[in-house]
Design a protein around this nucleic acid. Sequence first.
RNA 1: GCCCGCUUAGCUCAGUGGUAGAGCGCACGCUUCACACGCGUGAUGCCGAAGGUUCGAAUCCUUCAGCGGGCACCA
Length: 896
Amino acid sequence: MEIPKTYDPREAEARHYARWEAQGYFAPEVNRDPEAPVYSIVIPPPNVTGSLHMGHALQHTIMDVLTRYHRMCGYRTLWLPGSDHAGISTQLMVERELRKEGLTRHDLGREQFIERVWRWKEQYGGEITRQMRREGASVDWSREQFTMDEHLSRAVREFFVRCYDEGLIYHGEGLISWCPKDQTALSDLEVDKEETKGALYYLQYPVKGSERRVTVATTRPETMLGDTAVAVNPEDERYRDLLGATITLPLVGREIPVVADEFVDPAFGTGAVKVTPAHDPNDYEMGRRHNLPQVRVIDQHARMTAEAGAEFAGLDRYEARGLVVKRFEELGLLEKVSDYEFSITKCGRCRTVIEPLISTQWFLKQAELGRAPLALVRERREPRFVPRVPYEKVYADWLENLHDWTLSRQLWWGHRIPAWYTEDGRTIVARTEEEARARARTDKLTQDPDVLDTWFSSALWPISTLGWPDETEDLKTFYPTSVLITARDIIFLWVSRMMMTGLKFTGQKAFNDVFITGTIFDKHGQRMSKSKGNGVDPMEVFDKYGVDATRLVLAQVESTDTRWNDNLVESYRNFANKIWNAARFCLLNSEGATVGKGFEGEPASWALHDRWIMSRLNRTAQTVSAAIEGYRFHEAVQTLYHFFWDDFCDWYIELSKSDVTAPDASPARNAARSRVLTVLEQALRLLHPFMPFITEELWQRLPGISTAQLHPAYAHAEPTIMLAAYPQADAALIDERAEAEVQALIELISRVRNIRSEMNIKPGETVPVLVGAPDETLRAVFTAGVPQIARLVRASEVLVQPSINGPRASARAVLAGGAEVAVPLEGLIDFAQERARLRKEQEKLQQEAAKLEGQLGNKNFVERAPAEKVAELRQRLADIAQRTGALTQTMEALAE
RNA sequence: GCCCGCUUAGCUCAGUGGUAGAGCGCACGCUUCACACGCGUGAUGCCGAAGGUUCGAAUCCUUCAGCGGGCACCA
């Protein structure tokens, strides 16, 4: 069999994915067990405009690990893929394309534009789905969904109409966040606050009929043109006499009242606040409380309106700011300008400064929808957040304080709002135009031009993708979903809203668990972003190190924030190569061997190292399963890594080598070869959820692979490791004693190697090794292991006796259980150096002994600590005393 | 302003009450018949600071410092 020395992932990756997909192994239907438990995940739908970044790769890896693990455990497993139409992003993308042709969307008109977007989507939209195949994501492509698909659009209309009919959705005027660049309303979750250095302007307003002036402070002087009041705190002595007074607004001449409002903080600024109800959220509320007029001085393009006055009309808001300040200065009404840091609100997409505007929009009263999820998380701690801290609290606190959700967007790409207006001004909300006509009793209807916030359809994702509002089999089978895997930044935008809709429409929560992944930063701890150009492209990492290695890194990132480091991927690439070569060794020595054989009969009849590896294997299976089920992927990866590399490669293969590579064929050789193959095969299964490609590649090459290895639920399928049964730990094979005994062997071998290294014995040179073991059992272990010890320490002979009776010129070491080892080094040994080496060791022991003695000498410890803990320390101290005694003797023997 | 998290070996990170860990890097030695993407050996930490609880603290509590998040209507 020809097997290259180095694993080349590229070829295997493409081949196996294509086969798995073609065979339908990703679909839940592959499971033929009618009693199978169900496991389901819906993917957080990536934007159709997007391409894969590390965050996706991280989420996908974790979803795939969970999916593959549960599939191998026999669950009817569904991981449902899809993508999001991403309203603003997609529309802007296509508009940018149009601009290159010198066109705007208005040149095309709505219908043609939308057609164009669809064409764009068909042509360029699928990038992430292609990239997911490269990742090895075992999603069921036959169930792939897009939020603008007809079925999902129907679900959106159903959601809208039902909420409208119940009075949860309303059409009305409100002060909303407006992006002057994207020309649309936004919800408060789509804007970001950003600390900014600016100025605080102190403007003086003359009081009518008096020489007095009231000073107000503002960061936005241009809005004074729309002021309709000045507010002070009712308790503020300084302004008490001004209550009810009238202010003559400079530049404008409008007469505005001084009102009292609790909102005003007397300690801040001057204690007097200008009130601009049409352009500030707080002032808007204050204006409503005091019935103040709303004067709109800024328009949708962030330019001043005619109402701002002839001098300002048409100016950009920042130009107007400069001019207002200049005029105040000229009038002697600019008291001062001070540096000031405040937070400014920006469009989450384009970073343009948001303009709060009064506008008629559609809103959803989220507070009502939020009640059920809030009760669920408060009373039953559902869904279960992992990690619980801090996310459960973040989620619950947000649900407790819900604001109305601005639903409408002034865009063309998206779900059109299912509302129609009659000529006589009535509003009709309906699922279809036909239904609207019936409800309106007229054909003369105009549909609302706006579309819905992209997150409105996302809110339905778990139920709509499974068929809602129809009561489909998929909905019955796979809902509620098992777990949601996502990043922390969309807990409000998405996670909470899926819980709202799920509970409202099905009475059941959308998912049992919510796993929040960590964030991957660049190596300097900066957030990766396109604009900074510091992103690491997962595809490039796949190319360089292989998908499996990258997945291991991502899985062990788990939920901690991590700085990306190629070195880590490299070390897992090395691990993949280690697996490859271990398998290579097994396969090069596989003649006469069969997977699954070699461990016949009672475990008690097996050789020590065979009992040991089975114990380690089962312990590993136990730990890894528990870790995956508890979302402790770091632990799972570490456990697998060390089992494979340390236990299997460094020790089991080495301890088995002489049997496996015996020159002549024999039943014993076949059995030994079968055993390494069997352990390898089980290890590959354990690794498969994390490293799907290399495990499949190697598994297919093992002799004796057949449908017998598949989980019973998949018995009809062709052999593939992805449908093999995940190894279940057999507690009966976990053998503490075998583990302790092999540990003693390992210690012996390590000590001799240490002596060889310290004494500068050439690697090619063999030495005799004398072992003294007063304990009969231990002596038997060493005696049985003589050929293995000899091989691993390159000994010319190994003599095991109750005590060592060797030459004075020996390098020695003491072992656990009163055992000793000596390497006679006639002529090679420097007695002074050897004494120094032993003294160093003794010092270490004495330090530890001193610590233990101190603790055991503490009356409180002996009295209060658990008895077994005290006994354990005594045992350890006794062992150290024994070693120290032996060392002392050895050193005395060396003395001249 | 309120809330939360993080601080462990040179680097990236594990580790929730009982002998401080991994990978990489570093030092020394090895073309040992699976693997130099390897093998063997070794060095490296008053676990951010100060208090406290406890027989015992990296781990629990308090305060502080540095870093990073989230929330908030302070003009």
